[in-house]
Amino acid sequence: MNTPVPYPFDNAAGLDLADAYRVAQRTPGLLRVQLPYGEPAWLVTRHHEARAVLADARFSRADAERDAPRTTPVSPLGLVATDPPRHTRLRRPAARAFTARRAESLRPRVREISEDAIRRMIAEGAPADLVEHVALPVPITVICELLGVPAADRDRFRGWSDTVLSTSGATPQDFMAATGALKAYMGDLLDQRRAEPADDLMTALLRARDEDAPDDRASRDELVELCIAILLGGYETTASQLANFTWTLLTERPDAFVELAEHPERARDWVEELLRYVPLAASASLPRYALADVEVGGVTVRAGEPVLVAIGAANRDALRFPRPDTLDPARDTGAHLAFGHGIHHCAGAALGRVELQEGLSALARLLPGLRTAGDATWKSAAFLRGPATLPVRW
């Protein structure tokens, strides 16, 4: 078996896709990689193979009694690390409560939150940090309002999220403490919603769960994990991508903001292309274990072996997306994998799209002269890549 190569490849500074991914895509077979923690894994980088693995029930996401390949000392918890039937119990109430229609109904409120954040930044004066003033507060406000989290607790949530999603800046003890605090808080909030229902997602999740047959219902602990997954996924990913997309357009396609100001309906096309174009994750993660021998890319992955899917590389596969390193909002982006594929496709994808569309549109509309005011600084110890600070002026 090939000697594993050190992984991850990408540099934390910037959003470039490492050349090693392109080499892997041109090389027959799969690449054997070694992450900072855990056993070696096979790395999938080509689009058709990535899509196949993500949809193949012969690959399991459930916690295995193995030393899972990972970038952190402790593996993440929750919905992403489950298989049916547990995954089905967890996802069913989310699918019923977290619908595209619900996300679309939130669009006016998301627009208002985005505009309010931008106006506060304008009032502070230029130069200003777009991450601190817009990219972080908009999604945390949206997701906390959606879940029913009191406004006074949002800074606590941000701190817990930053710790849980840190790859090297937090100790295992910090990770467990933050996870424990999140579980306790979410559990208390669920109990409050059970006693006093409200017009929020947490109440909707409880009602959807109660509609299931008793043997199929998610437990209280499972609903707590689901709410944490919604919080982390709905906050951190959108915050990172709002900053990433703004940085990318300002440095590569500043004309896009002019277009978005004049034609806000184009935000949908720009967001889909940016979702494809920007490699968000610092590395492939969330290993899938083969339940039987499976051939992938001409390699037989033996039962019990882990496979990692590099979404960012797959979305830049020239065989699926011609001229993959060119930003083209007119291209067919229907097969991009930014929100995953198969049973683990992101349940909050519709809301994420609304937030990114409205965030970029509001920036274009309210700040027609938006431009960078210096170099960005970059997160160096996180699962998700992006600017830690993004100085802008207008």
Rank of each mutant, 00 (worst) to 15 (best):
M1K: 14
P4Q: 05
V5T: 15
Y7K: 12
G14P: 06
G14L: 06
D16M: 11
D19L: 14
A20C: 02
A20F: 00
V33Y: 04
V44R: 13
R46N: 08
H48G: 03
A50Y: 05
A57S: 14
R58D: 14
R58F: 03
A68V: 09
V74I: 15
P84T: 10
R86M: 12
H87G: 05
R107L: 10
E115H: 06
E115N: 02
A117K: 03
I118F: 01
I118P: 02
R119W: 09
R120H: 13
I122D: 10
G125S: 12
L130K: 01
V131Y: 11
L136K: 08
E145M: 11
L147Y: 06
L147H: 02
G148N: 07
G159Y: 00
D162E: 15
T167E: 09
G169V: 08
A170W: 08
T171G: 07
D174P: 04
T179F: 12
L182I: 12
K183I: 09
Y185L: 08
G187D: 08
L190G: 05
R193A: 11
E196S: 13
A218D: 12
E222Q: 13
E222R: 04
L223Y: 01
V224Q: 02
A229D: 02
A229N: 02
L231Y: 11
G233H: 05
G234F: 03
Y235T: 09
A239M: 07
S240P: 00
T246V: 07
T246E: 05
L260T: 04
A261K: 09
P264G: 06
P264M: 11
P279W: 10
A281V: 08
S283K: 05
L286K: 00
Y289F: 15
V299G: 06
A310I: 11
A310V: 09
A314Y: 10
N315C: 08
F321A: 08
D328M: 11
R331P: 03
H336S: 10
G340M: 04
G342W: 01
G342M: 02
G348K: 07
G352A: 15
E355I: 10
L366S: 06
P368A: 07
R371P: 00
A373H: 02
P387S: 05
T389K: 07
P391L: 00
